[in-house]
Write a protein that binds this DNA or RNA. Sequence first.
DNA 1: CAGCGGTTCATTTTT
DNA 2: TGAACCGCTG
Length: 758
Amino acid sequence: MSILNALNPAQRRAAETIEGPLLVLAGAGSGKTRVLTYRIGSLVNEIGIAPWRILAVTFTNKAAGEMRERVEALVGGPASDIWIGTFHSICVRLLRYEAEGFGLDSNFSIYDEDDRRAVVRRILKANNIDERELTPRQVIGQISQAKNAMLDPTEFARQAGEAPGRRQMAELYTAYETELRRNNAFDFDDLLIEVVSQFNRHPDILKKYQERFEHFLVDEYQDTNKPQYMLCRQLSAHHRNICVVGDDDQSIYQFRGADIRNILDFERDYPDANIVRLEQNYRSTARILAAANAVIGNNQDRKGKELWTEGPDGDPVKVVECDSDRREARHVVDTIRRHTSTGAYGLGDAAILYRTNAQSRPLEEELQRSGLPYIIVGGIRFYDRKEIKDILSYLRLLINPIDDVTLRRIVNTPRRGIGDTSLERLQIFARERSLSLFSALEQIDEVPNLGGRAAKSLGEFSALLRGLIAAKETIDLPQLGNEVVEQSGYREMLRGENTPEAEARQQNIDQLLAEMTEYFDSNEENSLEAYLEEKSLMSSADENGDEGHAITLMTMHSAKGLEFPLVFVCGMEENLFPTARAVDESRVNPQAIEEERRLCYVGMTRAREKLSLTYALRRYAYGNMIESEPSRFLNEIPTELIETSSEIDRGVARSRQRSDSQRSAPPARQIKPTSKSATPKGVHYEWDEPEQTKSTSEFGDFVDSDDFLAVGQWVRHGKWGRGQILEREGHGEKMKLSIKFSTQVKRVAVAYAQLEPA
DNA sequence: CAGCGGTTCATTTTT
DNA sequence: TGAACCGCTG
């Protein structure tokens, strides 16, 4: 019996049609991941395709990890031979494997947005351009746009012609590319473009992969950009067994270069393509689907799809008008409390979605007051914290010492008395001889005009790097990490600061070192290079442990692919959602609103059972109170599907109101530091007892913190899983626990460990 | 060369 | 509103 019997007829057709191009239009909640994994499972188990001849590409590490896991469940061990990864990770892999044939140095650095910015700012300075007339942001935006259009600097300049602004931009773009190449670095866009253009230059190498990958699967095809599209065409040209899965109605990354035409024109690109529509939804109630269908139906540019369900009608969609953003937040939090206090739902069942990150603030404030635990998805990445990036920069430099951008980042961190002036002199010396800064350091005595002190510091820095480079050959990754932290003086610097922030940074560094050990022990390929590569390609979403017991807050963009029984979409207001920019643009081009509408569709279809759409009549924006009107998207939902209500004070509607004096009362008790810098993300267990509710019993598990952190209790840690508390010392934010996990005993600081009850 | 205060500017962001 | 950043000062 085929494993495909577990699929519905449409899903089954999608999984079975393995010859030739296939477009799977998969509506929200229609079991798309299921189709992809079963398709692979059947290819391997039933058709007998060798796992290494299958390539599956996703957009996020999370999706790739999930797919691998689920395929493994179907086919077992051989799953590890399947190439499953993000576009970027697959490309890096190709660049490293074929570095020789491509004529590349495989030790290249991967530049993130900060690195990019550093490069652009230096270029702007070098060209005497005031950052106010041309911001780094603009320049990066244009360069990225050019790259997404696959225009190299030469072509860009040609198209720019005589237009002064474009001409200047062409020069900046040229300088940027030159700089990256000189540093042996690629930015995220380059990783894709480089593979595509190298394949064009080396058809023999391309051929090898074309023939190898007999079956090629692409997830979220609606969000591919031009380079990704080209790569798909290249790799599938030989066998033509390309299966793309996507939903044109969920294309929400056009602002970043995704081209919805890729999916809309698939049939033109592959005239012999088969098409399968997955329209049966297994997620949401009929009313939620009808409402979402009605909204998205207003878009012109779409393939056309109507989701349906065999499930129940469910509740009407709630549309709630609120006085202000604060009131909106209070309403949402109260409603979640009501749903969870009865035990009908867990806190992990609730998601609060919004258009912009700034909207999280009043919500967070309200949640902190309520004492309910919550997590914010998509905050600052652990790996974006300054101290973490600094340490990783040292490591990166050890592999690619000619990377001046990275060297500049850390040459004076910790302070070594190496200022801009000294560095500029070194730079001039290096440039005259076409040397990297690192190489120039080896002739430090010959650099003119350097003060004795500066020369000495630079000499010591050079020796430090050379020592670490030598050390990397003999010691393993965690040891090397530790050597960097100690020898660079970073640890000492933080110890000397004696501030809570420095303490937090030290803890972060300790966590980094612990993770290195963990990585080293649990990965077969555990070189420094592999480690850095993984970290460079990781996003904030990848580090979220199991949410489980906390309310989830995030943008609708971050919510794509997720689902929750309870969903609140906040800020349903004109000029916020749709954004003011989209509204403006729509006056000239009505289609400008369509991406916003798709986002609305994504938001609504996250809900399984209960969907609330809320808007505020007044809202703080940049410090001023502004008046708003309900979003046009609300009018697009048929009235018979919705139930409206008001959270407005009219003397009568004051029933659940609490007085402001109570609400601003100081916290009675606090377990966890509120410091956002120390814990920008992670579960916030804030037990400021709200005075107005004696609610310990109402949602007891979460309020009664001492129990859950007591010796003997079981807790869950994002990384190490379930464990039992052996020992406890200290109080409040200083509390440390020894926890016995399955393989080892760890000592963790409660404030940073993101523990939840298990 | 670092620490302070005025100025500017704010979508979404899989990698 | 507030962070991020510039330029001035000691």
